[in-house]
Amino acid sequence: MRLTDMADELYAAPACSALPGGVRVATARHDGVTVTRVEIAREGLERPRGRYVTLEVPRVSVLDERDSSVIEQAAAELRALLPPEGPVLVLGVGNRRVTADALGPRTVQKIFVTMGAGSRLPLPGIRPVAAVAPGVSGATGLSLQQLAGALVRELRPSALLCVDSLCSSEPERLGRTLQFSDTGLCPAQPGSRKHLAAARLGVPVLAAGIPTLMEAREGKDLVVTPRELDSVIAHGAALLGSAINRALQPRLSIAQLCWLAS
């Protein structure tokens, strides 16, 4: 079995010639971006039940936050998975000190936060948003589940959006693909402590990420990361942050959101 967080790598052709029962896959192409939607309607498969959307940009070496077309498409796909209203908590999962695992914390720095004592909001049409990167348990003494649970109980958001680095089985997709899902944060890596699910937290849990690593074919203890990883994380976090901001605040333009989040 391939180690991957990407649902389309498991179920989209040519990876899967015959789809398992309860799985539907649809692929479309818009402005050079390939959008693949995977819907899993039953339990017991390699990925949890729910909806997955991937956006792949093959024409560039890495994702670019200046690509407004990709941002708009990504925002539209994410918006379709989110509750239509209510506060949203964005959780940057990962270790900011480890480059391949820093996507979540780096993305949180780009989020337009509209909750808190220092905010001049709420304003009409502006959705309440909070963002935090809780760090790793070794530094805090608390597990991700404990921290997320405490934040959810305090803020009572309509949804929790987790941002994390992903694992792909295809090296050419590293740094060039986005995935959104409404299935919770469920990493494919065995023994991962990053699992966050709606059943545990009591609110919908969405996940967003970019593949930044893959399992080496020579051995399961090795990982492969893309060249220029620092650039992949920097540009990927900026683009993903812009897409999340646009999904949450559709009344504001990308330019306005970039200025407000800076």
Rank of each mutant, 00 (worst) to 15 (best):
L82E: 02
P84Q: 12
P84I: 13
P84H: 03
E85C: 12
E85P: 04
G86Q: 09
P87C: 04
P87G: 07
V88E: 09
V90K: 09
L91Q: 01
G92C: 05
G92M: 06
V93D: 04
G94P: 01
R96P: 06
V98I: 13
V98G: 11
V98M: 13
T99I: 12
A100F: 08
D101W: 06
A102Y: 00
L103I: 03
L103W: 05
G104D: 07
G104C: 06
V108R: 00
V108L: 02
K110M: 07
I111W: 08
I111K: 10
I111P: 06
F112P: 02
F112S: 10
F112M: 07
V113M: 11
V113A: 12
V113N: 11
T114P: 12
T114F: 10
T114E: 12
M115P: 03
M115T: 14
G116C: 09
G116T: 07
G116W: 03
G118H: 14
R120Y: 11
R120P: 05
R120E: 15
L121G: 14
L121K: 14
L121I: 06
L121V: 11
L121E: 14
P122M: 06
P122H: 10
L123Y: 09
P124E: 10
I126D: 00
R127M: 08
R127K: 13
P128G: 11
P128Q: 12
P128I: 09
P128Y: 08
A130L: 08
A130P: 06
A131V: 04
V132D: 00
V132H: 08
A133H: 01
P134R: 04
V136Q: 00
V136C: 01
V136P: 02
S137R: 11
S137Q: 12
G138F: 00
T140P: 08
G141V: 10
L142D: 09
L142G: 03
L144V: 02
L144I: 10
L144N: 03
L144P: 08
Q145L: 13
Q145F: 04
L147V: 15
A148K: 10
A148F: 10
A148W: 05
A150R: 15
A150C: 05
L151N: 05
V152C: 14
V152E: 07
V152W: 10
R153F: 01
E154S: 14
L155F: 11
L155G: 07
L155I: 15
R156H: 13
P157R: 13
P157N: 08
P157I: 12
P157G: 10
A159L: 05
L160I: 08
C162Q: 02
V163W: 06
D164Y: 02
D164E: 09
L166T: 09
S169D: 13
P171E: 10
P171K: 13
E172L: 14
E172K: 14
E172W: 13
R173G: 10
R173M: 09
L174K: 01
G175M: 11
G175E: 01
G175Q: 08
G175V: 14
R176P: 09
R176K: 15
R176D: 06
R176W: 12
L178Y: 11
L178F: 14
L178H: 04
L178A: 03
Q179P: 01
Q179G: 03
F180H: 11
S181P: 05
D182C: 08
D182Y: 07
D182G: 00
T183S: 15
T183Q: 05
T183F: 05
G184L: 03
G184N: 02
L185F: 06
C186W: 11
P187A: 05
P187K: 00
P187R: 07
A188R: 05
Q189A: 15
